[in-house]
Every structure is written in structure tokens, then in C-alpha cells.
């Protein structure tokens, strides 16, 4: 089982918030347009994005993604982190671009 904790370690990610380290990652989705994410991401996905505002927390919460992975070293703004902490949303950040991150996650999921 791929947990968020193990994913973060493997990606050497910066842990911004990890209230649910043992949540299972079952898939992935990448995108910055929030309605695409809400329409296409699945529950349990790792959501890879460079969008950093407060609405990301709401979308992650409603879509029930396992973790938000900020690519390109993006750091979410304060309001986003505050909202995410209220709803136990996992947030990590990595310096690589979305393509490289998705490729790495796909390898771990063996998809």
C-alpha cells in the first residue's frame, strides 16, 4: 500500500501539512483548473498542481483527494494552509515540475 507518508519520503517532498500520513494513495490527477479537478479527480488521488490559493483546500476536501502535491516548489498561501489544517488535508511540495512528479508517482503506483 502506498501511503501519503511513503509518497512524501520517496519524492523527498517538503511536508507542509500531514495530518493523515497513513491515508492511502490509489491514483493521481494533475491540473490547475479547479472544475476540471472536481470533475475528473478520484477519491484517493494524489493531486499535483501549481495552484496555491485557498480554494485548493476546498477542492481537495470536497474531491476527497489523498494529498495535494505542489509542483515547481510552489508554496500554498497562508489562507490555504489554514483552511487545509481545518479539514485534515495533506499538503506537500516538491521542486520538480508536474510532469516529473506525475511520472514518479506513476512508477510507485505501477500504473
Amino acid at each position: 500500500m502506498l501511503t501519503v507518508k511513503r509518497l512524501a519520503e520517496a519524492l523527498n517532498a517538503n511536508r507542509i501539512l500531514m495530518p493523515e500520513p497513513n491515508r492511502e494513495v490509489t491514483g493521481g490527477y494533475t491540473g490547475d483548473l479547479l472544475s476540471w479537478v472536481m470533475g475528473r479527480a478520484q477519491s484517493g488521488d494524489a493531486w499535483v498542481t501549481i495552484m496555491s490559493n485557498v480554494n485548493v483546500a476546498a477542492v481537495a476536501q470536497l474531491s476527497d483527494t489523498a494529498v495535494v502535491v505542489f509542483a515547481e516548489g510552489v508554496v500554498p498561501d497562508e489562507a490555504a494552509v489554514r483552511a487545509a489544517s481545518l479539514h485534515d488535508i495533506n499538503l506537500i511540495s516538491v521542486p520538480e515540475g508536474a510532469f516529473a512528479v506525475c511520472a514518479a508517482i506513476a512508477r510507485m503506483l505501477e500504473v
Binding site: 490547475d32 483548473l33 479547479l34 472544475s35 476540471w36 472536481m38 470533475g39 480554494n55
Partner: peptide, 15 residues
């Protein structure tokens, strides 16, 4: 700029 405006909201509501 906030990530809205894809024109997918109403289609999602329908789906």
C-alpha cells in the same frame, strides 16, 4: 487566475 473559469462548473453539476 484563481483556477476558476474553465467553463466546467455547470457541466459538473449536471454530471
Amino acid at each position: 487566475a484563481l483556477g476558476f473559469g474553465a467553463g466546467m462548473g455547470l457541466p459538473n453539476m449536471k454530471r
